[in-house]
Nucleic acid binder design. Structure first.
Lengths: 247, 247
DNA sequence: CGTTGGATTGATATCTGTCAAGCCCGGTGG
DNA sequence: CCACCGGGCTTGACAGATATCAATCCAACG
C-alpha cells in the first residue's frame, strides 16, 4: 500500500504543451496557438507521484483532470470485502480523472505503477475556459469519448473472450499505444505486475501466467518477466480475432 | 433484425421538459427556468422507434444526443464474426448517444427493445448552447460521468463476480432504477430477452436460466418469463454482496 | 390448432480457479 | 563475494463453475 497522503513535489510545467511530444495524443490536439496559450495558462503545475502513491483516492474532491507525462497509473474500484477491479492503465498522453464528472468527487482510486509525472488542469479554470473555447469543449468531449470507447471494448473483452484471447487483445492494445507514442510496437515493458494485469483481464494470476507461457511456447511472443517481445504479430491478431472485432 | 432504415415518425415534443416526469433524471436537472426554455428550444422533436428498429447504427454520423421518454433501448457492439456484446440498457430518463463523442460517428448500435419514444437534442444546437450555458455543460458532464460510472460498475461485475452474483446485482440495479422512476422496486417487467440479458452479463443463456431458477427455488424471487417479483430483497443483496460493493 | 422462437432443464465436456509447491531474481547482510 | 531471504512469478494437480449440446417445454401468434 502507498501512503494515504503522498508527498507531491510540484512546480510550473517545465515543458509547455507546445513542446510536449504528447500533445498530439492529449487535450491540445486541434487547438490553435492562441487557444493553446490560454489552455496552458490554466495548467497549474506538473505533479510528481512516487511509485505506489495515489494521484487521487475515492471520495476525493474533483479538483482536476490530469494528463500523464511519463510513467503509468492504474485506476481501480475497491470493495469493502477486499476485492478490487482494475479499471484501466494510463500511459503518457492519456487523460485521467473523468470518474468524478458525475458526482464531483472521485469514484475510484488512481495509483502510480512507477514514478510518474502528470500535468494538472484544475476543474474551475477548465470550466471557465470551456465557456469561451468551443474547440476545448470539443477536445474534452473527444477525450471523454475515447474513455467510453475504451471501456466498451473492455466490456467486449470481459464479456465475450476467453482468457487467451483477452491477453492477446491486451498485448495488441499495448503494442498500438506504444507505437502511437513513438516506441517499439513489438518490444516493450509492461508497467504493471501480473497480479494487476490478471485482475484487469478478469482472470486468476495463475491463468494469466499459463497464457503467457502458452503464447511463448507457440513462438508468438517471448516473455522475460515484464519484458515482452512480439515475434508473430499476425498470429497474435488471429488469436485476438483482431480483424473480426475491429471491422 | 430490424430495418436498416427504420421509419421514424417525429413531431415537436408534445411534453415540454417542464412537464416531463423524467426531468429530474434527465439533462434538465438543476437548470433554471430560463435555461430550461433555451434547452427546450433546441430539442428538435420526439422520435418514435418501433420495436427492433435502430435509433442509430455504428458509423452513423453523430447527429444528436437522445433522451429516452418511454420504452427501452439496448446498445451493442457487433463483430464481423457474428459475436456481439450488449453494452447497456437505457430506460426512460436515460441519455444515450455518448459513444460517438470521440469520433463524431457512432461506435455501436442502439436498438429499441420495445416501441420507444426519445427526445432528440441535436449536437450542433447543443454545442452552441454549451457556449453560453455553464449549467448545461455541467449537466452534460454529469450525464457523461454517470455513463462512465455505470460502465465501471459493469467492469467490476464482469471481472469479479460469478454468474449468480451478476444476476443478483443486475436485478437490484433494475429495481433501483424502477424505483427512481416511480415504479415498483419489487415487481417489474424486464424489457429484454434472456438472450440479451445473458450476453450483457457475460454468460450463456442456459446459465442465466438456471440462475433464475435457483433464485426462485430459494424463494428470493419469482419469475414468470419477463415478469420479476423480488420476494426477499435482503437475501438478494446478500448474494450480490451489495453492502460490500457500495461502501 | 399448429408453428415458431424463446425459455427451461438435463447430461456432459471444458475451461478456469484454487491450492500447493517450487522457481527465479533482486535485495540484504554477514 | 556469497548465502540467505522474500515477493513475484511459474508450474502442476485437482476441483468446481460454466459452456455446450440436446431435448423438451411453453407462450404468442397467425
Amino acid at each position: 500500500m502507498g501512503n494515504l497522503s503522498p508527498l507531491r513535489s510540484s512546480k510550473k510545467a517545465a515543458v509547455a504543451c507546445n513542446n510536449c511530444s504528447l500533445s498530439e495524443l492529449c487535450l491540445p490536439r486541434g487547438l490553435t496557438q492562441e487557444e493553446l496559450n490560454r489552455l496552458e495558462a490554466a495548467i497549474e503545475k506538473t505533479i510528481k507521484i512516487t511509485k505506489k502513491d495515489y494521484l487521487y483516492r475515492r471520495d476525493d474532491a474533483h479538483q482536476a483532470i490530469y494528463a500523464v507525462k511519463s510513467g503509468a497509473i492504474k485506476t481501480c474500484l475497491s470493495t469493502s470485502d477486499g476485492e478490487e477491479q482494475i479499471l484501466g492503465f494510463y500511459l503518457p498522453g492519456d487523460l485521467i480523472g473523468f470518474d468524478a464528472l458525475a458526482h464531483n468527487h472521485h469514484t475510484c482510486d488512481a495509483q502510480a505503477l512507477e514514478d510518474t509525472l502528470v500535468c494538472e488542469l484544475k476543474m474551475d479554470a477548465f470550466q471557465d475556459l470551456c465557456g469561451s473555447l468551443a474547440s476545448l469543449r470539443l477536445g474534452m468531449m473527444r477525450q471523454v469519448g475515447i474513455e467510453i470507447e475504451r471501456e466498451h471494448h473492455m466490456l467486449l473483452t470481459l464479456g465475450q473472450m476467453r482468457t487467451e484471447e483477452r491477453l492477446a487483445t491486451f498485448l495488441i492494445g499495448i503494442s498500438e499505444r506504444n507505437q502511437a507514442r513513438g516506441f517499439s510496437r513489438k518490444e516493450f515493458y509492461l508497467p504493471m505486475a501480473r497480479h494487476d494485469l490478471a485482475n484487469y483481464l478478469g482472470m486468476a494470476v495463475e491463468t494469466l501466467s499459463r497464457m503467457f507461457s502458452r503464447l511463448q511456447e507457440d513462438n508468438i511472443i517471448t516473455v522475460r518477466h515484464r519484458l515482452i517481445d512480439i515475434l508473430d504479430m499476425d498470429k497474435l491478431k488471429e488469436l485476438a480475432h483482431y480483424n473480426c472485432r475491429n471491422t
